[in-house]
Amino acid sequence: MNRRIIAVLAAVVLAAVGAGAVLLYVRSADNRAVAGKQARTVLVAEKLIPAGTNGRALRDGGYLRQTRMPAETVPDDTLATVEGDLDALVTTAAVQRGQLLMRTMFGTAVNRSGLAIPDGKLAISAKVKSAVFGPGAVRAGTRVAIFYTYTPVAVGKLDEVSGSGLERGRDVNNVTRLLMTDIEVISVGAAAGEGDGEVARPATATTGGGDVAITFALDQRQAEILAHATALGGLLNVGLLGDSSDVRPDRGVDNGSLFGKAG
């Protein structure tokens, strides 16, 4: 009996020693990673953080862990702690496990549905053609480029919109150009039909077929541009941006340059 007790105790001691050795190795690995560099404490998502999570819930819910990283590799707005001023704000999109927590991820909840607007931005909705992207591709947190198809006021005046909507006809020239880029999507819903009196019916993702109403986070100038473009008529499309997407303003494409060099 004594031998069994001794064997069990020995196994427990060895397990504790092994666990301690692993912890020491991990810590030493972290130290080696920042050796010779200025280190900075940052917060990392320990698990998925849902959109609409406020600062208090982050502190109390075990969502985060602190770690040390070389300062030169960390974005300036990365957080080291969740201060009290974030209690009144919420995450504007889901934060994936292992992702750094940044100040720009928070906004103000503005309605009961949990819609959140990033600091300094406006929420502007517009009807967008959905034929160019798949179901569910555009959702809260997606960053997009917005393209506008319109009829210019006259031949050679591509910078002036006619104001009579998107005209069609054998001799009508239309233009598609980049309106703005690197725009954050706040929410996506099914577009209301003509005369419904609403911008959109509640939805969380595109369902394919027909138009969708997308709510964007815009600054004042961008909001003015989008509102004016919508009032003039024409069609809006969005393109999803990747980390290396290269999108720049240009003269766009018209009927005469669709298969050739853009004007």
Rank of each mutant, 00 (worst) to 15 (best):
T73H: 11
L101T: 01
K121A: 07
E46S: 15
Y63P: 00
A39F: 04
R103M: 11
L79S: 03
V13L: 14
I124M: 03
T67R: 08
M102R: 15
G107H: 04
A16T: 13
A109V: 11
D87C: 03
Y25A: 14
A15C: 11
L115H: 06
L58A: 09
Q38C: 00
A131G: 10
Q96H: 10
R56E: 11
A15Q: 04
R97N: 02
G52N: 03
E72F: 02
L115I: 11
D119V: 13
A88H: 02
S125Q: 08
Y25Q: 07
G141S: 04
A57Y: 01
A126Q: 00
G141Q: 01
K47T: 00
K47Q: 07
D30I: 10
A116P: 00
A71I: 04
G36H: 01
I49W: 04
Q66L: 11
A51K: 11
A16S: 13
M102Q: 14
T92C: 09
L9P: 06
T73M: 10
A29N: 12
A35V: 01
Q96L: 13
V42I: 13
T78R: 06
V17I: 15
L14W: 04
A131P: 09
I49Q: 05
A140L: 08
A51D: 03
L101G: 08
G62F: 06
V22P: 00
G98M: 10
V44P: 06
A39T: 05
V22S: 05
A15N: 11
T108E: 14
I117W: 07
R139K: 09
L101H: 03
R103W: 01
G52S: 07
G55E: 06
I49L: 06
L89G: 09
V132F: 12
K127N: 09
T104S: 15
V95D: 11
T67D: 04
L89R: 01
G114Q: 02
G120D: 03
V34H: 07
V22Q: 07
V138N: 02
G136D: 03
V90D: 08
V44L: 14
R65W: 09
K37C: 12
R40A: 10
V132E: 10
M102C: 10
D76M: 12
L23G: 05
L115S: 10
L43C: 06
L79V: 03
E46D: 15
K37M: 12
A123E: 05
A137V: 07
M102L: 14
L9Y: 07
G62M: 08
L58I: 03
T73Q: 10
V12S: 11
I49A: 03
M69L: 15
R56P: 05
P50C: 09
R56G: 04
I124K: 06
T41L: 14
A51L: 05
F133M: 08
